[in-house]
């Protein structure tokens, strides 16, 4: 606010609301509750994907058994080695790549199919909606671990199969969100008007409904991402997800479970990374939602 002295300049013709509003929006992202978690996520992402090449790390599973359980700070092994003599830093970073790929992939699967099903279920409320909703209910009532077990038993555990298994169960979550939001929007007058003037359903869904529900869906996507990350870790821990020797944060914890008392760091380090990533995703979701609320105001 300008503090002009009360002189004849005190009356300035009409306001400039447009640019000021846009400035305000950009500024809404520039606050600690958005920037800090975003920066942490970006750092983890960069470290995992660029780190191994940048620092010429050894491959994660080519360790020498004679180098087993080197302490942190050993020459050539900054974070030490595990019981097989594999470099821990490399394990952690490459494991991070796998964990991130799997959880983003699974989240994207859920986002695309779940949102589509949810929107259609919400728009065509009668028969189609009821049928789709029951399907989502079935997926929801189905213990998510079963499909993973079945897939692991049938197709063998692998990165791609883990994505499918987790993604499948993300569909139900996105479906519910998208349906609830669509139901909210569908009753609004402009949709009713569009419907009664004969615009095709898919055109309304895409041009009118999607923009109005996208915000909520993407806000849920960050939460789904953290769920997917936990699911990946849990499955890999149980030996049903990413198979050893490919490392992932989950199976690093799982495979070192029996050395808990001997070398707790082998579990604590991936656990911290997992925690930092999931917590940042959760915090970012909070921060962005806060921003949404203040924009509406």
């Amino acid at each position: 606010m300008t503090t002009a002295t009360p002189t004849n300049t005190s009356m300035i013709p009409t306001s400039k609301r447009g640019p000021r509003l846009r400035l305000y929006r950009a500024r809404a992202y520039r606050k600690p509750s958005v920037i800090v978690p975003a920066a942490i996520l970006l750092f983890i992402l960069l470290a995992c994907f660029a780190g191994p090449t940048l620092f010429h790390l050894p491959k994660p599973s080519v360790g020498n058994l004679s180098d087993y359980l080197l302490p942190i700070g050993s020459p050539h092994h900054l974070l030490g080695t595990n019981t097989l003599g594999n470099d821990m830093l490399s394990q952690l970073l490459v494991g991070g790549q796998i964990t991130i790929i799997v959880s983003v992939g699974a989240m994207a699967l859920g986002l695309v199919f779940g949102t589509l099903i949810g929107m259609i279920a919400g728009y065509y409320e009668r028969i189609v909606g009821a049928v789709l909703m029951r399907i989502l209910d079935i997926i929801f009532a189905f213990p998510d671990i079963i499909l993973a077990v079945a897939i692991a038993a049938y197709l063998g555990p692998s990165v791609i199969n883990t994505i499918w298994a987790i993604g499948f169960f993300n569909i139900a979550g996105f479906g519910r969100i998208a349906r609830a939001q669509t139901l909210r929007v569908v009753r609004m007058d402009f949709i009713v008007a569009g419907r009664s003037s004969g615009i095709s359903g898919f055109s309304i869904l895409w041009t009118h409904i999607w923009p109005n529900i996208a915000g909520r869906v993407f806000a849920y996507a960050l939460i789904a991402l953290s769920y997917a990350m936990m699911a990946e870790a849990s499955l890999s821990f149980l030996g049903l997800g990413v198979p050893i020797p490919t490392p992932s944060w989950g199976n690093i914890i799982g495979s070192n479970q029996s050395y808990m008392s001997l070398a707790p760091l082998l579990i604590v380090m991936p656990a911290i990374l997992l925690f930092a990533t999931i917590a940042s995703a959760n915090l970012l979701a909070d921060g962005l939602q806060e921003k949404r609320a203040s924009t509406i105001e």
């Binding site: 002009a4 009360p6 005190s10 009356m11």
Partner: peptide, 26 residues
């Protein structure tokens, strides 16, 4: 309608008032 630089020092209705004069804005 007018926007007043310092609303705390102006009559609150100066923006739309038909009878406003200089002092109303200051």
């Amino acid at each position: 309608p007018l926007e007043v630089a310092s609303p705390a020092h102006a009559c609150s209705y100066v923006g739309e008032c038909a009878f406003r004069q200089g002092i109303c804005g200051t």
